[in-house]
Amino acid sequence: NQASVVANTLIPINTALTLVMMRSEVVTPVGIPAEDIPRLVSMTVNRAVPLGTTLMPDMVKGYA
């Protein structure tokens, strides 16, 4: 099973992502692959992402 990116904290809308905000976890449904974490750093989220939420491609500006 592939690990996905999961919010390690509440990420407010329009926040630039940092490494400490994200962790990898095997979850269903599958979200952004964990190997993309380095690429996500400094990208911003377009909605509030609660703790434990899987990051989906449409949640990160410029990812999809």
Score class of each variant (00 low, 15 high):
61 K>R: 15
25 E>A: 14
29 P>R: 03
29 P>D: 08
24 S>E: 13
42 S>D: 06
24 S>T: 12
18 T>F: 03
31 G>T: 01
14 N>A: 11
60 V>F: 07
36 D>H: 12
62 G>M: 10
59 M>C: 04
61 K>W: 14
34 A>M: 12
14 N>T: 06
16 A>G: 09
45 V>T: 06
12 P>Q: 09
32 I>V: 07
61 K>V: 11
16 A>V: 14
43 M>A: 07
49 V>Y: 02
56 M>G: 05
22 M>C: 03
44 T>E: 07
8 N>E: 07
21 M>A: 05
8 N>F: 05
19 L>M: 13
33 P>E: 05
18 T>Y: 03
59 M>F: 08
24 S>P: 07
16 A>Y: 14
57 P>Y: 09
63 Y>R: 03
46 N>L: 14
52 G>F: 05
3 A>K: 06
14 N>C: 15
53 T>Q: 11
10 L>C: 15
41 V>W: 03
6 V>N: 01
52 G>M: 05
52 G>H: 13
46 N>P: 03
12 P>F: 06
35 E>G: 09
47 R>D: 05
33 P>Q: 09
4 S>M: 02
63 Y>W: 12
34 A>W: 06
19 L>E: 04
28 T>R: 03
45 V>A: 04
50 P>K: 12
28 T>D: 15
39 R>I: 11
59 M>P: 02
45 V>C: 05
35 E>H: 13
45 V>D: 00
43 M>D: 03
5 V>E: 00
55 L>V: 06
4 S>E: 01
10 L>A: 14
31 G>L: 02
13 I>H: 11
5 V>M: 02
61 K>C: 15
30 V>T: 09
2 Q>L: 14
30 V>P: 11
32 I>K: 00
37 I>C: 05
12 P>E: 11
7 A>F: 02
27 V>T: 12
45 V>N: 02
34 A>R: 05
21 M>W: 03
16 A>F: 14
17 L>A: 00
54 T>F: 02
49 V>R: 03
37 I>P: 00
23 R>F: 03
1 N>A: 15
50 P>D: 14
33 P>D: 08
17 L>P: 02
16 A>L: 07
21 M>Q: 05
32 I>F: 03
55 L>E: 02
37 I>T: 15
23 R>K: 13
23 R>E: 03
21 M>F: 05
28 T>F: 09
47 R>C: 07
27 V>H: 03
59 M>D: 12
13 I>A: 11
39 R>G: 06
30 V>W: 12
36 D>A: 10
16 A>M: 12
63 Y>I: 04
45 V>I: 07
44 T>A: 08
6 V>D: 00
26 V>S: 13
22 M>I: 15
61 K>I: 14
3 A>F: 11
44 T>M: 12
55 L>R: 01
39 R>L: 09
22 M>F: 06
22 M>H: 00
16 A>P: 11
19 L>Y: 12
23 R>I: 06
2 Q>M: 11
50 P>N: 09
26 V>N: 08
54 T>A: 06
13 I>F: 15
4 S>H: 00
34 A>V: 09
12 P>D: 10
20 V>M: 15
13 I>W: 07
1 N>Y: 15
1 N>F: 11
64 A>C: 13
48 A>F: 10
57 P>N: 08
46 N>K: 10
49 V>Q: 02
47 R>M: 11
4 S>A: 03
57 P>H: 12
28 T>I: 10
5 V>W: 02
